[in-house]
């Protein structure tokens, strides 16, 4: 297999208003592997996915997908590139006016000229893979959160993409559906050999499926490596995150003046 990285992020800067979200992020996502991007909430992991998908434009730096500069493409070329990607949104983002079957069929209908019978076969195959072939007539409002995410996964796979972006796939799931999703992501990746980027802060689940991990904090890559190497990383910040300790280099307290002085000064001002 071609061993050039599928996605390359170079010197990415992005700010929203006055706050810098990324100050020089470099990533290289290998082909055919699951790469996890982790970090405490609020570090802009979803923003990073939107930058990779070309929905947001960075202030500086570039994103290359299979050698193409995402933000240098025309609107038309960008939409063409996106057909080779699938994205699983945090909420599933199923189209609420279409039923499960039509949701999965949607990418096929807009991008291919396949006859209805063939679309039916593909859709049922994808739904079978996520175990929801029987739910094809339900509307998205009738699905549980975990089921909605599985349907969304089937939809993201409908066009057999080369790259799948997972945005917080495990958040807010009960242990059973979490287990189902973990297994699905792993299995799909092995079966189809596609490149996957998983953005998450669920450490245990993510480390169990990832081949390579980036930890992002404060706008840049804080640590990277295989799950095993991160687990034994000596860096205090990495170890706080990986082992989920409440206080450490990432402080429990929001930055403030000394508690004692704060209390006293309030009295003095009165």
């Amino acid at each position: 297999m071609d061993d050039t990285p599928f996605v390359v992020v170079e010197g990415l800067h992005f700010s929203r208003g006055d706050t810098d979200i990324f100050r020089g992020v470099d990533l290289s996502i290998p082909r055919g592997k699951i790469t996890a991007i982790m970090g405490p909430s609020g570090t802009g992991k979803t923003t990073l996915l939107k930058l990779i998908g070309g929905q947001l434009v960075p202030d500086a730096g570039r994103v290359l997908i299979d050698g193409q500069n995402v933000h240098g493409l025309s609107r038309r070329a960008l939409f063409r590139l996106r057909r080779r990607m699938g994205m699983l949104f945090q909420s599933g983002a199923l189209f609420s006016d279409l039923d499960v079957y039509e949701n999965v069929a949607f990418p096929l209908r807009v991008h291919t000229d396949l006859p209805d019978a063939m679309i039916r076969d593909v859709v049922l195959m994808k739904l079978q893979a996520v175990g929801l072939r029987g739910a094809r007539h339900l509307m998205p409002s009738e699905l549980s959160g975990g089921m909605a995410r599985r349907v969304a996964l089937a939809r993201a796979m409908a066009l057999d993409p080369e790259l799948i972006l997972y945005d917080e796939p495990f958040v807010g799931q009960d242990p059973i559906s979490m287990g189902v999703l973990v297994q699905l992501i792993k299995r799909i990746n092995e079966a189809l050999g596609l490149t996957a980027i998983v953005v998450s802060h669920d450490i245990k689940e993510t480390l169990s499926i990832a081949d390579y991990v980036y930890v992002i904090s404060d706008g840049h890559v804080m640590a990277q490596g295989t799950p095993q190497s991160l687990d034994v990383d000596q860096d205090a910040r990495v170890s706080q995150f990986v082992h989920g300790e409440p206080d450490g280099p990432v402080p429990f307290h929001y930055p403030a003046v000394d508690f004692f002085t704060d209390i006293l000064s309030a009295g003095a001002n009165r």
Partner: peptide
């Protein structure tokens, strides 16, 4: 607005539909 809030517009964009 609801379609935007539930990321339906974003996901449509990512599927490659404007």
């Amino acid at each position: 607005g609801l379609m935007k809030a539930t990321e339906q517009l974003s996901s449509m964009e990512m599927i490659g539909v404007d």
